[in-house]
C-alpha cells in the first residue's frame, strides 16, 4: 500500500515513484580484471535479510539513482544518498 523514501533531491515520496535494482554493494570491475571478478559482478548476488544498501531509481521523480540504506525486513531506512555521491565517497576511501 505504501512506503516512503526520502529522496535527497525531491523530499519524502511514496515508493510507487521508484524502481528498485537491488544490492548496491557489488563494484564494476576494471576491464582487465579476472574472469572470476566479472562473473561474480554480473551473476552473483547475496540475498541478505536485514540491513542492506540498495540502488533505487527515482524514475517518477528526479530520475536520479539513489543508494538507500535500509532494513529490508522492517523497512527502517537509515539513509538515502545520491548514487553519484555514494560512488565518489567509495572511490575516495
Amino acid at each position: 500500500m505504501a512506503s516512503l523514501i526520502t529522496c535527497p533531491h525531491c523530499g519524502t515520496r511514496p515508493k510507487e515513484e521508484f524502481t528498485i535494482r537491488g544490492d548496491a554493494a557489488p563494484r564494476r570491475p576494471g576491464s582487465a580484471d579476472r574472469d572470476e571478478a566479472w562473473y561474480a559482478y554480473v551473476y552473483i548476488r547475496d540475498n541478505p535479510k536485514g540491513r542492506i544498501l540498495e540502488y533505487w531509481h527515482h524514475a517518477g521523480g528526479c530520475r536520479r539513482w539513489l543508494v538507500v540504506d535500509r532494513d529490508n525486513l522492517t523497512h527502517e531506512v537509515f539513509g538515502v544518498v545520491d548514487a553519484a555521491d555514494f560512488q565518489r565517497t567509495e572511490a575516495a576511501e
Binding site: 530520475r63 536520479r64 548514487a83 560512488q87
Partner: peptide, 13 residues
C-alpha cells in the same frame, strides 16, 4: 534511458 542514467550516475559520475 534508465540504463544510461545508471551508467552515468553510478559508474562514471
Amino acid at each position: 534511458m534508465t540504463h544510461m542514467e545508471f551508467c552515468a550516475q553510478t559508474f562514471w559520475p
